[in-house]
Design a protein around this nucleic acid. Structure first.
Lengths: 111, 111
DNA sequence: ATATCGAATTGATGACTGTCGATACCGTGA
DNA sequence: TCACGGTATCGACAGTCATCAATTCGATAT
């Protein structure tokens, strides 16, 4: 059921529209800085991480990190929460799973 | 075991090098034309498809299709075989699975 | 109010990429 | 050997993107 909300599995005749949608989600993932953000946030205590703790381990400027975080939120891969003047983020695993599920050209576990 | 040859899972502290590698594989997937190619080839009889049957359903020119096929082969997602003057392709599911496995921030099936 | 500090936005720049027309390459069959 | 046809390569162009410095926005605390 997880792939339904996001992108239909590839199994076959993927039409251009679905392909564009899935490609959009993958584009959001296809960047080293964003993968590391997901990795760092996903490994954080209680699953939540503050933006203020991300620039340094990433080795990128604050505007650049902010830009990537926005991209990931727009793609539905991160959830954002404002706490006072700090921004906190959490990985939306359901969404990540949906993308992963959609990535089955020939899924060995299915029919 | 499948993710070892390709890219380490995101689980945590993904370093820049690993992130670049995984991002590379995802970049290869993050294009509508290439997703459709995988989909079409994966659904073909016996898993093999001839390049000559791909331009038309894709609605792209022959050079463009050739370019995308090359990209997918370089990324290890397609296997190429020359038969006379025709080029045949097959989806490398192991590689696709490896990428999919690497895409787990918190893998429910593991430790 | 005002100073402070974290985060988002803006603007600019250099690099990359998807696309196609034209062309070159290379098996096959006559 | 030559013509044919499938495929790859080349050159060009338009669009996208990652990045940063400078600036603005917003919330907190004094």
């Amino acid at each position: 059921m997880s792939s339904v909300d996001c992108c239909p599995p590839l199994h076959d005749p993927l039409d251009e529209g679905d392909a564009v949608e899935l490609a959009g989600a993958l584009k959001a993932l296809a960047d080293p800085a964003r993968l590391r953000l997901l990795s760092i946030i996903g490994a954080a205590d209680a699953g939540w991480a503050c933006a203020c703790d991300l620039h340094e381990p990433l080795g990128r400027s604050q505007p650049t990190v902010s830009h990537h975080l926005t991209t990931l939120v727009k793609a539905g891969l991160l959830e954002r929460e404002q706490r006072g003047k700090w921004a906190w983020f959490r990985v939306r695993e359901e969404r990540l799973s949906a993308v992963r599920d959609a990535l089955s050209v020939v899924d060995p576990v299915r029919d």
